[in-house]
Design a protein around this nucleic acid. Structure first.
Lengths: 195, 195
DNA sequence: ACGATTCGTTCGTTATATTGAACGTATGGT
DNA sequence: ACCATACGTTCAATATAACGAACGAATCGT
């Protein structure tokens, strides 16, 4: 092949961070479902060898390969490219409304690539539900439109009232619990992506 | 990949929907930047031939290839794997609260890479403020925690009340306007992550 | 008008992603 | 104990993604 750039060659051969991250995600999602490599190979039509190498981070899968895996795992293709982050719980109490003039408060800013979901959660009084753990690195934001509730990570729930903001890791078990009053909560779920 | 699928084997030029979508995204983002295929080839270190084929939807790029393109275009990798979200104004009226049991409503999902800002906006009665236009591609989401207001693009404002969701393009002039009652609004601003 | 660039495509070649088969290990059944 | 089955890894062979080069069509000076 005439004048191929050798440096470039070797770069392609090296394990890319994107491929390594995808491999880790594949393994994580597969195990989450109690699925073996062999079984995933059967469902995707890929070979066990390919899956083994990809999960080891030693691959460079094509988009079709990733798509086949995503389909077999019943997840969006982009979820295979999500990367772990280290979110911490943040509780931002409501501020007193200013009597005069409008107020604009920046509650939270997240840089980088994210997919976004907006949910509304309506909880009657004396209700308790568990949140489904999301993709690793997902951060969940609760904005209490009205009412009161205890919510957050299972190991660190917080007491929230109208106007409060709570941000916490959405990839761990978490729950929402109301007492004597119902609650109306806006939930913003941000999943990080590789960029 | 589809080694066990003879139907795909025979059609060598078969284009997977994922690859076709990625190709369309590449072309769109490249042109957005006024960049030629040749220039993108130079920046990525890929060949013009590869890019030409990918944009034609006749390819099956590896994750490294996609990553190189994403870096050159300064966008998150996931942006190349998602179809466009409709940047149209969306007004989702509040639903009636369910008397029995909690309700979980998915209001909106945005795929791809975004930076995120969460704001709380408190508007007294008879107040009018203008929103500063954000970066191109920015989508603004209003969730009315309480009260009423007219808000949205300057050329297409909507009347909102408690519980409503309004999504609209944040890169055009827009405004928030209250009448006889004040309003408490959560604003989620999602900007495409550009390096 | 003309050559000189630059563009995007097409063609054969080369590098490599994926494969099937073989391997060692672990677990289960009899 | 034994054999059978299933798991995940390694390796040579194969299929194919990416390549360099050449092409025709625009565009640009001069």
């Amino acid at each position: 092949m005439t004048g191929t750039d050798p440096a470039h060659r070797s770069e392609r051969r090296a394990t890319s961070s994107a491929a390594a991250a995808a491999g880790a995600q594949i393994q994580r999602r597969r195990r989450q479902r109690g699925m073996s490599q062999a079984e995933l190979a059967r469902r995707t039509g890929l070979s066990k060898a390919t899956l083994s190498q990809l999960e080891a981070g030693a691959g460079n899968p094509t988009i079709d390969t990733l798509d086949a895996i995503a389909v077999a795992l019943s997840i969006p293709l982009t979820d295979l490219l999500t990367r772990d982050a280290a979110p911490e719980t943040l509780h931002l109490p409501a501020t007193a409304p200013n009597d005069e003039g409008p107020t604009r408060e920046l509650l939270r800013r997240i840089s980088g690539g994210h997919s976004l979901e907006l949910w509304r959660l309506r909880l009657p009084a004396h209700t308790s539900i568990d949140g489904v753990p999301h993709a690793p690195g997902t951060v969940e934001h609760l904005l209490v439109a009205s009412g009161r509730l205890d919510a957050g990570p299972a190991d660190d729930p917080r007491s929230l009232s109208t106007g409060d903001l709570l941000a916490f890791a959405g990839d761990a078990p978490h729950s929402y619990r109301t007492g004597d009053v119902p609650a109306d909560v806006t939930v913003v779920i941000a999943s990080p992506a590789i960029g």
